[in-house]
Each structure stands twice: as structure tokens, then as C-alpha cells.
Simulated scan of single mutants.
Amino acid sequence: MDKVTLSIGNRQWQGWQSVNITRSLGAVTGEYRISLTQKWRDAERLPIKEGMAVKVIIGNEVLATGYVAERLPSYDGKSINYEITCRDKTKDLVESSVLHASGEWKDINLQAMAKEICAPYGIGVVVETDIGAAFTTIRLEQGESGFELLERLSRQRGVLLTSDANGNLVLTRGSKSKLATRLELGKNILAARGRFSEDSRFNQYIVKGVADALDGWEPSQVSGNQVVIKDNLVQRYRPKIIITEEVFTAEGASRRGQWQRQRAIGQSFSSEITVQGWRMPDGQLWPLNRRVDVVCPIQELNHEMLISTVTFIEDDNGRVTVLNVVPPEAMDIPPEKAKPKDDTGWLSLG
């Protein structure tokens, strides 16, 4: 069985009784909670401090690179427990504010912007998809974190922000790659819990422009501009107005509306599926951002889904992997300029 190792400096720590490792396509930083319980006579003080650089390794595979974020030592009359929480290097992008002399950038694309924001933290940037055109003007909001800034820019380009095993920031989209293994009730699904909701779904997303006088735009020129993205699977009248964060263009507003619609799909239609062990039949760890066939009559699922979150768990009941799957449409924003479709594939609220 694969050992879970925390590699900190020149030391490697193993023998953890409880492990919970989560990576999510919808989150830029993963979280890893690991605990060790020892009897008093066997206990040793762990020289692990918050802020230390750490790698989380399963077997011989590096799963995450980051920092020790929190320590929770506790004890009773019989034993001592050490619980360690680690987070990806990208945690600093989420928690720290951006410092910039002018607070404004001109004619810069998402990749260049991400590299500039990530550089002070020693975080690399990996681009896996088309990032679209350069932004005419970007303005920093007071106190805004690096992630908040990059996330609002990524919405305009239909790009997802996540992290990889080496702690890099990754600019990506929902993968087209599909696993040979499928998830099927009565075969490899141990447990499942679906969420099928109409909350946060609207029949139309109306994206409007905002004035930017410094770029020669007058309010009267901008206020009338709008793009409407429809979700025909929402039958009732439910409009949602969105103000675009950049100077209005039809393409940018269209992509912004599609991003909002697709994320709403992912939030309202998902399934949490538990399988035995941490590896697929081919020996690979269950991956993030891969398509997989799901066959589950109880949830009325017989579709290709996308793995949006992976959680590796070990406790007294053994090892399991919890996979959150969503419709591929939820993470699929077209990278090229095209007239957006009004439907959302096979997805239906029934």
C-alpha cells in the first residue's frame, strides 16, 4: 500500500493514521489534513512548524507542493494527537493583497498578468489553453488579492484557475480527455450523493458594459450595450444582469455570460461518488479534470461527466477516493470567438 509522506526539509514523515487530501478544479489551492495519534510512551515531539515548505507524496508521486498552514496538537490521558494542515503554494495568492505602484496595466494578456502577480511569491505559471486577447486596461481594486484579481480577469476569458502538483498556478479549461475506467453502480461505486437543484440557474444572463471615461467611453455609449446568453433548460422567466469587469466588447461580454451560465450548471448539477482505494485499475491515482462515464440509475445518470474535485481519504475504515463529477459543459467555455449556443447539451433538471 502506498505510504503518505510529508517531505519537510531533509526529513520525511510517515505513519499517519488519518489522511484527507483534496484537489479541486474550482479552487486555486488544495488542502491536505493529516493526523498522527501516538500513545504517551511512544510519542515524540514533531519539529514541524507552520510556514515550513512541504511536499505531499503518495508512493513515489508528488501530489502537492506548499506550506504547513496549521498545527493542532492535542492530548488526553491516553494519547497525543498531531493534526497538520497543509495548503498549496498558491495559498499566498488567495490571502495576500496585490501591491502595485499605479494600480493599472495597459495592453497586457492573462498569461503575462499572471506571471507578474505570481513572481513575488515564487509561483510559476503554466498555460494549458488559449488565453484570449490582451486586456486594454486593468485596474486594481483596493486590497484585492492576487487570486481575486486574476479570477475576475479569467472570467472574461473563460479560463479556469487551479494549481498543479508542483505548486504552479495553472490556466486551463475543462479537459476533453476521457478515462477508460467508468463509474458504475453495483461495480465500483461504494456510495454516492447527488445534488440536482435549480438554485442559481437563470433563463437568461444579460451582460452589460460599464463606462470607462479614461478610455474615451461616455456613459451614453456604453450603457446601451449588452449581450444575452440563454439557458433554454430553465423554463421560467428568471433574468440575471451581470456588469462586465472590463470595457464592453461583444466577444468579452459573451464569454463572461457563458462563464456565469456554465458555473451555475456546475453548482446546481453534481454528484459526489465514493470508490474503494486511491488508484484506478490501471494503477494510476484518480486524476482531476478528466472525463468519465457514470452509470447510476438511482441518480438517473448515464452520461459522460467531468471530475471537478478529488479527495483521497484514509481513516479507520480504510482508503477511499471521493470524486465530485459535474457535466463537462460546466467547465467548458469556448476559447474561440463563436456565437454561443443557447442549450447546455444533455443536461436537464427533469
Results as ranks from 00 to 15, higher is better:
L140P: 01
C118H: 11
N166E: 13
I131E: 05
D231R: 00
G122T: 08
A192M: 10
F202P: 06
A165T: 07
G167A: 09
Q204Y: 03
S220E: 08
P120E: 13
R173K: 12
E184H: 04
E245R: 07
I131Q: 03
Q142Y: 02
L183K: 01
G143V: 03
E151F: 07
N232R: 08
W217S: 13
R155C: 11
T181Y: 13
Y205C: 00
I189V: 03
V125W: 05
G146C: 08
F147V: 05
V126F: 05
R238P: 01
Q221Y: 06
C118E: 14
D130C: 14
M113P: 07
V222M: 04
L171R: 08
R256Y: 12
F202E: 10
L169P: 06
Q156P: 06
I117Q: 05
F196L: 10
L214D: 15
E184G: 07
I206P: 01
T249N: 09
V127D: 09
A191T: 11
A192P: 10
L179A: 15
P239Y: 11
G174W: 00
R193N: 09
T129K: 12
A191C: 12
L171M: 14
R238M: 02
V228F: 02
S154V: 08
Q221N: 09
M113N: 08
S163E: 05
R201P: 06
R236T: 15
E141H: 02
S163R: 00
Q221G: 10
L149M: 03
V228R: 02
Q235A: 14
I123C: 15
L150S: 14
A133F: 01
L150H: 13
R201N: 13
A211F: 02
I131S: 05
A250I: 11
V247D: 10
K240A: 06
A112M: 14
A192F: 14
E218Y: 10
G216P: 06
R173L: 12
D231Y: 00
K208E: 09
S223D: 09
A134V: 10
R139K: 11
F147W: 04
L214S: 11
D164L: 00
L140M: 03
I229M: 01
A191V: 12
E184M: 07
V234Y: 02
E148H: 01
G132I: 01
S220Q: 04
D164S: 01
A114L: 04
N225I: 14
G174K: 00
G167Q: 08
N188P: 08
A250L: 11
Y121P: 12
A134S: 10
Q142T: 07
R238Q: 02
K240V: 04
G167V: 09
K176R: 12
L190W: 02
E116D: 12
F196Y: 12
F147G: 04
G143S: 03
R155E: 13
Y205W: 00
Y237W: 10
E245G: 14
L140V: 04
N188A: 13
N166W: 05
A134W: 02
K178S: 12
P219G: 09
Q221F: 07
R193H: 07
E116V: 11
I138E: 04
I241V: 13
L160P: 04
S197E: 05
A112S: 13
V228I: 10
G224W: 00
I243Q: 08
D199Y: 01
N188E: 11
T181S: 15
C118Y: 09
T129V: 15
L160Q: 06
T172S: 01
F202V: 13
V222P: 02
L214R: 09
F135T: 08
E198Q: 03
S200V: 15
A112K: 13
